[in-house]
Design a protein around this nucleic acid. Structure first.
Length: 290
DNA sequence: CACTTGACCTGTCCGC
DNA sequence: TGCGGACAGGTCAAGT
């Protein structure tokens, strides 16, 4: 599921909903989704206060009092759903809200707060995880040492996306975009959407891209990520935000999961292929292989 | 070394 | 209706 816009939407929601709360108890399916030893959870997580909720790439970082942090990766089907006062289950928009009561069979971790509210980590496919570690150790994790720049940061220029992509100059541009060490946070949806926006065929070898391609891709990627954040992310079936609500970006998608439909730009029928081992959507007229 | 493929899991959908 | 296989928004380890 979650790529940069979805994780950012969850982050913003949690930052609003759980900062200042104190952890009362934690139950989990340890070690699968939460591999820390029970003793460490008891010592460094129980009784800790939530200080801030941050994001780097597709990873959530929840800083706790006591110089520890929770690191959470939602992978394909992870959810973080808060329930407590001020957030009414299914309220307002029944069709946009989580229908099943929590916990359900996908619930892997439950955080109980001292005010009676709860945070559920659900993950159907069990690829995601929660880890507790000293805040100071986060930058030393292999993932954070090698992860690329944030594409929405002010200093992310077209020259930077060019330089980063050229680290994978022998491969196709879609595989390079999906590589988290090249650029942070891009996944299958926004790779396809941004390549369509920049009129670049996904199998184009990076070394063959022109400066115009890099400029167009830089703009298309930032535009599509920002639009999706504004729409609360993309929801297929498993993604929901911290209040259990779905995002609406898929309504605005131009090619992703729109095979058989006309390209919004030229009317040519969108096709689905396989690139870099992933389902890939493109307009065969707008995105010519050069 | 650079790049590609398989594995991790569960659930759903599609063809026979 | 049942069954097998492909596929699903991500990332590693292992393979070529």
């Amino acid at each position: 599921m979650p790529e940069l816009p979805e994780v950012e939407t969850v982050r913003a929601g949690l930052n609003r909903l759980i900062v200042g709360k104190r952890v009362l108890a934690v139950t989990s399916d340890t070690p699968k989704s939460f591999p820390n030893a029970e003793a460490d959870v008891k010592q460094f997580l129980v009784r800790a206060e939530i200080i801030a909720v941050k994001r780097r790439a597709k990873v959530l970082i929840i800083d706790l009092s006591g110089a520890y942090s929770l690191i959470i990766h939602l992978k394909m089907t992870g959810q973080l759903v808060f329930q407590g006062k001020g957030v009414h289950f299914g309220a307002g928009h029944p069709s946009d809200s989580l229908i099943n009561p929590l916990p359900d069979k996908s619930t892997r971790v439950i955080f109980d707060f001292t005010d009676g509210s709860k945070l559920f980590f659900n993950d159907q496919r069990k690829f995601g995880w929660v880890r507790l570690l000293p805040t100071i150790e986060i930058p030393n994790l292999d993932f954070f040492k090698k992860v690329g720049p944030e594409p929405l940061s002010d200093d992310f220029t077209w020259q930077i996306i060019k330089e980063r992509l050229l680290r994978r100059k022998g491969t196709n541009v879609k595989a390079a975009l999906l590589d988290q060490s090249v650029v942070a946070g891009v996944g299958n949806i926004y790779a396809d959407e941004s390549l369509w926006g920049a009129k670049i065929h996904p199998t184009t070898i990076v070394a063959k891209l022109t400066d115009k391609n890099f400029k167009d891709l830089h703009k298309a990627l930032r535009d599509v990520l920002q639009l999706s954040i504004d729409k609360g992310g993309s929801s297929n079936h498993t993604y929901v935000d911290a209040e259990g609500k779905k995002g609406s970006y898929m309504t605005f998608a131009n090619v992703f999961r729109r095979e058989g439909q006309p390209c919004p730009r030229c009317g040519t029928i969108i096709v689905k292929t396989r690139v870099a081992g992933r389902g890939t959507h493109l307009c065969p007229h707008c995105q010519k292989l050069t």
